[in-house]
């Protein structure tokens, strides 16, 4: 079953962030708050837009995610997987803090073409 999480880029450093349950912006998608589409999502978007007004983030929007077997959060669209997991061009640019997405790592560069694509 798909859920929503809210994401944006942080104004000060531009990095990808996710809205967490306590209203803060987390660096990792694993700390994102899972939301149901509808009023639950809409209420949190109000908060996210306020954070944009408050100069914390730029351009907040919601993305669709699924929960994996291991309980990790995985974006549905590959664009959002790349945002959440880091660039797939250099092995050391892929985000090491997010498990589960490097399982397809093989000897073929790019490091996780299949994992993300």
């Amino acid at each position: 079953m798909t859920r929503q999480v809210i994401t944006a880029n942080r104004l000060k450093d531009g990095l990808v962030v996710f809205l967490a349950e306590d209203g803060s912006w987390a660096d990792s998608i694993l700390d994102a708050q899972l939301l149901k589409a509808g009023s639950e999502l809409d209420n949190r978007l109000v908060l996210a837009n306020a954070a944009e007004q408050a100069k914390i983030v730029v351009g907040p929007y919601e993305i669709e995610v699924t929960e994996t077997d291991t309980g990790d959060i995985r974006p549905v669209r590959y664009r959002e997987r790349i945002r959440a997991y880091g660039p797939s061009t250099h092995a050391d640019f892929a985000r090491q803090d997010i498990p589960g997405h490097l399982t397809h790592l093989d000897d073929v560069s790019p490091v996780y073409f299949n994992g993300v694509g």
């Binding site: 880029n9 450093d13 531009g14 990808v16 730029v58 664009r79 945002r83 880091g86």
Partner: peptide
């Protein structure tokens, strides 16, 4: 910012 070459991209500026 664009006129000064600065983008906000997928992961960062």
């Amino acid at each position: 910012r664009l006129m000064n070459g600065l983008y906000l991209q997928l992961h960062a500026y």
